[in-house]
Each structure stands twice: as C-alpha cells, then as structure tokens.
Design a protein around this nucleic acid. Structure first.
Lengths: 214, 214
DNA sequence: GTGCACAATACTGTTGACGATCCGCTCCGT
DNA sequence: ACGGAGCGGATCGTCAACAGTATTGTGCAC
C-alpha cells in the first residue's frame, strides 16, 4: 500500500473508470510500458488490487479485471448496508453543526440535480454524500471497508444510477438519512440507511432474475 | 492471493500465533531464508498481508507486524458486530435441521468447557461457533470481511478470553444467539449477536481507559 | 474433414545483482 | 558537554535475464 501506491492507484482509477473493463486481461509488460515503470512495480500493484478484490490472479495464467456477478453485487450491497448503517448512526451522534449544514447543502444540490434530471451530477453528489457521512462518523475501519466494497461493485452502481426514476426514489431515501443525522437520531439514521440500501438490493435482485432469464 | 498463497499463509499463521509479535520487524532476507523461498515471494506475501492490515509497510524502511491499539480494536469489534449480526440473521433464515443440531452441540460443549473452567477449549469452541454461523449464513463477502477483522484483533481477542468470569458471561450470550438461530428468528439472532459484541466492546473500552490511565 | 500429437508462442515466476535510501554512529568544532 | 555534518551498515526498490508453464496454431494420420 505504501510503495506501489502510485502505480496501484493509477491502475485502480483506470479500472474503475472503465478503461479496463471487467474480464480484460492485464498483461504485466503492457502495463509496465503504459505506466513507464518496471514489471516489478506492476506485479506489486496487481497483488495489491487482487487483495482488494478488484483484480483476479491465477498462477501462471496472469491477471484480469475481476467480473462481479449480480449475485455478488447483492452480497456486497448487504454488507455495505450494515456497515454504512453503523456509519450513519455514528455520524448522527458525532456531527458538528458545520457538518450538519454541509449535509443539508449536499441534499439541496441533489434535489436540484433531480429536478434538472442530471443523472451524472446526481451520481457524483450521491458519492459525496456517502463520503461525507463516512468522514463525519470518524470510524476508520468501517470507512476503509465501505470504500473497498463500493469500488468492487462500482460497475453495477453506475448501471443503477442510469435507471429511469431511480434518482427520484433515491433522493427521498437520502432525505430521510440526512434528516435523521442532522436531528442527531442515531437509530433512525441507521434504519434509514438500511432502508436505502435494501432498496438498492431489491433492484439488483430484479436484474439477477432478468439477466439469467430467457 | 493466488500465487503467494502458501508463503503468505505460513507468515500469517506465524503472526497470529505470536511467533512474530506486534511491532516485530519483518526483514525480507530473514523471512526468505526461514521459509526457503526467494525474496520476491516474501515481498508478494508482505504486500498481501499489508492489504489485510496485519502488516505495516513503509517505503525504504521495511515491514513490521502491525500494532493494533485498543481504540482500533474497539472499531474492529464494532464493524464485526454489524457484519456478524447480518451473518446471524442469515444463518437463522438458512440453517438446515442438521446445522441447527451442530450449533446446539457446540453450545453444549461450550457449557461443559465453562463448567471445567477450561478457558483454552472455550476459546477454541467460541471460534468454531462463530465460524459455523459464517458457514451456515452462506454469505461469502461478509465471511471474508469478518475473517479478516478477527485476524486483525486476534491478540486482544486472546487477552479477552483469559479474563476471569468472561467465559461465563460470554456463554449466556452465545446461548441467546444459538437459541434465536435454531428458532429461525433472524432479527432476534441479529440482536443477540449485537448484544454479544457490544459487551466485548465494553470490556475493550475499560482497557482503553485503564491502559492510558496512571 | 476430423482428431490428435507436437512445436511455436506468449506470458508469468524466479533469481541474482545493482543502485537508492534511511538510520545510527562517530567525529569534530564550538 | 553539546550539536551538527559526515560516514558506514543495513535494508529496500528496481532492473535484466532466464526458466517454467499454459495456450495457441500447425501438420499429419486416418
């Protein structure tokens, strides 16, 4: 995490933004040339991303961008649900006045984005809101775990954000979360976060049925 | 995870069983000789264990066994609480008749261990019970996360197991968990698991106050 | 035309050596 | 005695070359 950080970070970004789609083979020599580093640095980065679950490695067969099935995305979202529930509860207990304002501002921007039907901005603000909660909760362990889980399911998350009507539904749920957190009501914030991610899980489950349908 | 697996696994075991205590420096050349492998394999293993949080690496300064503060152990236990709560709930929903018997048997053995004041056996059965629940829940993502969190706080966990009277208190809580799971009551199982790990958190918090006391 | 043995290829895994960096220690000036 | 510059040992980071293994393509027999 320390030494290969620059290379691993660049490779991670490229994977997350789709430059290397799921299933793409990651050949050490090509990556070494692309990032202008030695093969050793690439190897270290691949080991790191493998441990993160973003990359899959097989002995003597090389590495590839990990494919996340919908079923696995459901599991990831369930794990996120309980962890972000914890984060929401702590955020409600620990938020300062300034941080509460910040959350309300973010929610206002999200509302505006929905009104303008700007899905991309909404998706970005969505990430920012969840990130703000993690920062406010000041819980390093949960923060790291959630960041990793989010990355793993990033593709499905993106697909979800583009669904028609999804942003509006999501906005209501985020409103409930922000309301509970700013009110300092931990249990309500946790419940609201659970409800939010349970609804995400539901959508994913429908895809699961659809994807393996006829 | 794949190729360095054998070396990483051996090193992990040695760290967990205390052969390399927290703070111990892990020098690549020494480890390479100890495990009869090249330095490259050691490097890969260290990167992997770094990502797991068991080892800390600094550029040009080498690796050492990560020290986990009591404060961090509290965070780890909180994260475990919500994840194992999810596991307990799923286990309650998914356990077969045979698996329910297995849980009851484990609980009976734990009761016997407490009666004989056999802390070591109790600790081992404790791990087995939590492991059985993870297996029964069939939730790969949560399983992996919890396994990792458990490893990270292993030392504190061990210290906890040796506390006088701790086993008896723990037994009651595990009884509640097993009862809820075998009854198929998901929410009750989740609540019982939360209560159990909340009590662990409480003990850790007392240590935190004590450790940095006078 | 089809199936199988076999060779060519492509990539990974490993090794050894070299250069870079950091830490502790000594030495010297004040 | 004290503090800072300089030196040396220890250890990591990187590179180039080689060996090993899986995969692909080719030719031959039938």
């Amino acid at each position: 995490m320390v030494i290969a950080a620059p290379v691993a970070a660049r490779l991670r970004d490229d994977i997350l933004e789709g430059t290397f789609p799921p299933g793409e083979r990651l050949i050490e020599l090509q990556l070494a040339e692309r990032y202008r580093v030695g093969r050793a640095a690439i190897r270290a980065a691949l080991v790191e991303l493998d441990a993160e679950g973003l990359v899959q490695r097989e002995a003597n067969r090389g590495a590839m961008v990990r494919r996340i099935s919908v079923a696995e995305a459901v599991e990831i979202t369930q794990a996120r649900a309980v962890l972000e529930g914890l984060i929401a509860r702590l955020a409600a207990e620990r938020a300062t006045a300034g941080e509460r304002d910040e959350l309300r501002d973010l929610l206002a921007e999200m509302t505006a984005a929905v009104e303008h039907e700007d899905k991309l901005t909404y998706s970005k603000l969505n990430r920012e809101l969840h990130g703000a909660l993690r920062r406010i909760a000041r819980h390093r362990v949960a923060d790291d775990l959630v960041a990793n889980l989010r990355n793993r399911a990033a593709h499905h998350q993106f697909r979800l954000a583009l669904m028609p009507g999804r942003a509006a539904e999501s906005l209501v749920q985020h409103g409930a979360i922000v309301e509970a957190v700013t009110a300092g009501d931990g249990p309500a914030a946790e419940a609201a976060m659970h409800a939010h991610l349970a609804s995400v899980t539901e959508v994913l489950r429908q895809w699961e049925d659809f994807d393996r349908g006829p």
